[in-house]
C-alpha cells in the first residue's frame, strides 16, 4: 500500500452506490468488451453470492450493461444503460447462480457477438473497484486490466513461447508478468502475457503468424 495515491483516498469519481458492486461491475463490463473486441449482440449474466442478493439495490445490473456498452465508471448514463442497450440492439438477461468456491462478488457472462462468436467469462469484483477475470473461454486466467495483455490460444508444443518472447524482445517490449496455462499436455494452451508497452498492429500480426498460434488478442489496460 506504499504507492497509495492521494486520489485513491479522494477518488475515484464514480457513479454510486458501491465501489465493489457498481464501479467494479462496470469495469468488469469494460474489460469483457475489450476482450470480445466486437459489437455485442446478446449477453446472459449469472450473478453469484453478494451480487445475486443485492444486484438490483446496488445497480450492479445497470453497471455491468453500461460497462459492456463502454461507459466508464463515472458516466451518469449508467443509470439508463438498459435503454442505451436497447437502442444498440443489444439484448441481455440476468440469472441467479451458485458458482462453487469463488469470491462472493462474482459473475459469469455468456457473451455473443455480432458474428455469433460466444465468449464465456467469469469475473470477480475484489474491492475498491478493482476486478479480476478468472476464467476465459473455459480456461483459468488472471486478468486485472492493469497492463497491455496478450492472450494466446495455441498448441501446447516446445519452442512456441520462446518464439513469442523473441519477437517481443526484437521490438523492445518488456514482459511484466507472464502465465502459461493448459488443460492437458500436448493439447491447447493459453498464455497471458502482461506488457509494459502497447503492441502495434504489425507486431500483433507477426505473433499471429507464429506456427501453432490459433488465436491471439491484445487487451488494453482499463483506465
Amino acid at each position: 500500500m506504499n504507492n497509495l495515491s492521494a486520489f485513491d483516498i479522494i477518488g475515484p469519481v464514480m457513479i454510486g452506490p458501491s465501489s465493489s458492486h457498481t464501479a467494479g461491475a462496470c469495469r468488469i463490463g469494460n474489460l469483457a468488451k475489450e476482450i470480445v473486441d466486437n459489437k455485442l449482440k446478446d449477453v446472459k449474466i449469472y450473478f453469484h453470492g453478494s451480487f445475486k442478493e443485492t444486484y438490483r439495490g446496488h445497480g450492479t445490473d445497470k453497471a455491468i450493461i453500461g460497462g459492456l456498452l463502454g461507459l466508464k465508471t463515472d458516466d451518469s448514463r449508467i443509470k439508463n444503460s438498459f435503454k442505451l442497450a436497447e437502442k444498440e440492439g443489444f439484448s441481455f438477461e440476468f440469472f441467479p447462480v451458485d458458482l462453487d468456491d469463488v469470491h462472493p462478488n462474482t459473475m459469469k457472462l455468456e457473451i455473443t457477438d455480432q458474428e455469433d462468436i460466444k465468449t464465456p467469462i467469469v469475473a470477480s469484483s475484489i474491492g475498491g473497484g478493482n476486478i479480476i477475470v478468472t476464467e476465459l473461454n473455459g480456461t483459468e486466467v488472471k486478468l486485472k486490466g492493469e497492463y497491455y495483455t496478450l492472450i494466446t490460444f495455441h498448441n501446447d508444443q516446445p519452442g512456441l513461447i520462446a518464439k513469442i518472447s523473441e519477437i517481443l524482445q526484437i521490438y523492445n517490449l518488456n514482459i511484466a508478468e507472464m502465465e502459461v496455462l493448459r488443460k492437458e499436455k500436448g493439447r491447447q494452451a493459453t498464455a497471458i502475457i502482461n506488457l509494459d508497452q502497447k503492441v502495434e498492429k504489425n507486431i500483433l500480426q507477426l505473433l499471429r503468424d507464429i506456427p501453432g498460434i490459433q488465436s491471439l488478442k491484445l487487451v488494453k489496460p482499463l483506465v
Partner: peptide, 21 residues
C-alpha cells in the same frame, strides 16, 4: 442520498462515506 440513487460522487475515502467530506 445521491450516491444511493446511482448519482455521480467522489469516493472519499469510500462511496459509502462520500457525504462527510
Amino acid at each position: 442520498e445521491l450516491n444511493a440513487a446511482m448519482g455521480k460522487i467522489v469516493a472519499c475515502p469510500t462511496a459509502g462515506s462520500c457525504g462527510i467530506l
